[in-house]
């Protein structure tokens, strides 16, 4: 994963609430064995409507998406994060996110920025005409009009994002601790340690 520092540019003022991952990327697009090329199917049902904001030339290539409450609810498909990345979106700003989506976004270097609805409303206004800036280090969202909103980020996630750390690599360094756990489990809960081998 590439390190993430700040994201600046136009923001798509989408604003919808409870955007589910079937909307972000419909199931027909999940048949791929790659992570690439999903922008084509992103928001397919939304883009079927004439005059939709996603296809508005004003926001082509915008790196930020603004949405309503509970963004990314529903399925666990990481394809939703891949589709956003493929569209060029590397930050999503919303009042709240589903747990699985925010994890998937984080693992792909997409910032999920939670701000209260009134700040979102303000950013929706700004986004129509001007760029927005999201800075991970200072944990702020700013506009050319002196708006300055701070947001929370989990310290571990911030560290991983800013350094572009590989989580699997980090955990593999803890192999000894995992081995110790496995050894204890085989003693105390042997039935759990056996898995698919029982009937083999």
């Amino acid at each position: 994963m590439d390190p993430v520092s700040s994201i600046e540019g136009r923001a798509i003022p989408y604003g919808a609430k409870n955007v589910d991952t079937d909307v972000i990327i419909p199931a027909a697009w999940l048949k791929t064995i790659s992570r690439d090329g999903l922008a084509q199917g992103a928001f397919e049902t939304v883009r079927a409507q004439p005059g939709n904001v996603i296809d508005d030339p004003e926001y082509q290539g915008a790196p930020i998406l603004i949405a309503g409450d509970n963004f990314g609810c529903g399925s666990s498909r990481e394809h939703a994060a891949w589709a956003l990345l493929d569209m060029g979106v590397t930050a999503v700003i919303a009042p709240s996110f589903s747990d699985i989506f925010s994890g998937n976004a984080f693992k792909n270097g997409i910032l999920t920025v939670e701000l209260p609805q009134e700040q979102i409303d303000r950013l929706m206004e700004v986004a129509k005409t001007d760029p927005i800036s999201v800075d991970l280090e200072s944990q702020t969202v700013t506009t050319p009009f002196q708006d300055r909103f701070t947001f929370e980020v989990d310290p571990f996630r911030k560290d991983c994002l800013s350094k572009g750390l590989d989580e699997v690599g980090l955990t593999l360094e803890r192999s000894d601790a995992i081995s110790q756990y496995e050894k204890n489990q085989a003693q105390t809960m042997p039935w759990l340690a056996k898995g698919t081998e029982i009937a083999a």
Partner: peptide
């Protein structure tokens, strides 16, 4: 449920 990065 987990995403594909977590599956990995």
């Amino acid at each position: 449920g987990i995403g594909t990065s977590e599956v990995e």
